[in-house]
């Protein structure tokens, strides 16, 4: 009988980071949350997330299988342990993650993740088209 880990526990590291508490970062100990990274120096930010993959029995509320963390960067699945070291440097709020996703849809040039993003060429407006 295994109870699913409460969401508040899963997000504790992320929450503590956002308020500036600087929780420890261990290489083999990734945590759930939302992040932003650059693929190249000066490049546009790309959204990343680590979430929990689990199956909960609807009848008992218990775990049907092991919980595991999954990772996605710019919509692509990645190895969470390999990526954790650099994702952990830039946690962002869910709202910022959503805004970043929205911005990437409205500014085409942000799709070029491996080239520096030129703010002179892409003037940022309050409401992007």
């Amino acid at each position: 009988m295994r109870q699913p880990t409460p969401l508040s526990n899963l997000l504790r590291w992320h929450r503590d980071s956002l308020v500036g508490k600087r929780p420890p970062i261990h290489e083999n100990d990734p945590h759930m949350g939302w992040f932003k990274v650059r693929m190249v120096r000066g490049g546009p930010y790309v959204p990343a997330r680590i979430w929990i993959d689990r199956e909960i029995c609807p009848l008992t509320g218990e775990l049907a299988c092991d919980e595991r963390l999954l990772c996605e960067i710019d919509g692509e699945r990645r190895d969470v342990r390999r990526e954790w070291a650099w994702l952990s440097k830039n946690p962002i709020s869910k709202a910022e993650y959503d805004e970043l996703c929205s911005l990437r849809q409205s500014i085409e040039a942000m799709a070029a993740t491996h080239a520096p993003f030129n703010l002179q060429e892409h003037v940022i407006r309050p409401i992007c088209p």
């Binding site: 709202a95 910022e96 805004e99 703010l119 892409h122 003037v123 940022i124 407006r125 309050p126």
Partner: peptide, 15 residues
Amino acid sequence: ESNEQAQKANDFLSG
């Protein structure tokens, strides 16, 4: 009013 909007405005200023 929001951090996200402030970040965008910051990008505008950088540009």
